[in-house]
Amino acid sequence: MKAFLPRQSRVRAHAGGVCWLAVAVLLVLSTGPALAQGPSVTVDWASASSRPGAWSTGVQGGWPWSGLRAQLGLAQRVTLVGELDTAVFRRFQPSAGLGLLLVGTPKARVSLELGLGSVVQGGVLPQQGPSGTLRLRLVASPGPVGPYLVAGTRHTLLHDRTRTYRLGVEDPEVSVQLSHRWSPWLQVGLAFAPTRHFGFDVAIDWHFVDVGVVALTLPGVHFGIQVGNPGPRGEVR
């Protein structure tokens, strides 16, 4: 059987793989035992849960999604979350809501996040309307690197107006149409915590934008940085 890749390409592919492996090893080594010493802003950020008074903020860049998020712990299991997501700066999704910690142990957290906001999309397919989000977050922090998974759903209500000017009639006929858009997504990533007050993450994003309207969805990737104050050391909850 013939090799699919020419020899030179295979060498390049191997070199690329080794390079990524070296980066991953460096990232793991750089994180040290930080996660074992107590809560970190990165785990707080990934799980949308902070202790009362603790806060974290993060910025992420990637393709096609980038964004900002800030959160503040309100109560033992309730966190205020505000964020702005954007897809290639054509679609903006500002929202605010609450993160509710369902399970909190030193090594894992499960939380639900509820948000209200809007979708504002420009370009050739403009749309704008209020939206609501629901996310389930699972974060594990068994060591210096913690994997996380986010499953979310966003529902957007669009209200479109059409004004029809008939010949010989001065006032237009006005009709209003309501429509619904559903945009679920899945995120799988790794959270790194070099210190308790600083961390970063890499993740793969699957945003299925406007299911049934947009036929094609491409996976994306992002890199994020988080800073903040996770509160005192000790048990997470």
Binding site: Q128, L157, T162, R163, Y165, L167
Partner: peptide, 22 residues
Amino acid sequence: FLLALVVATGCWSSDEVLFEVA
């Protein structure tokens, strides 16, 4: 309900104008 939506989001998602042409 519609008024509340419009106020909440600032404007219509789309506002199309059709002119009848004979």
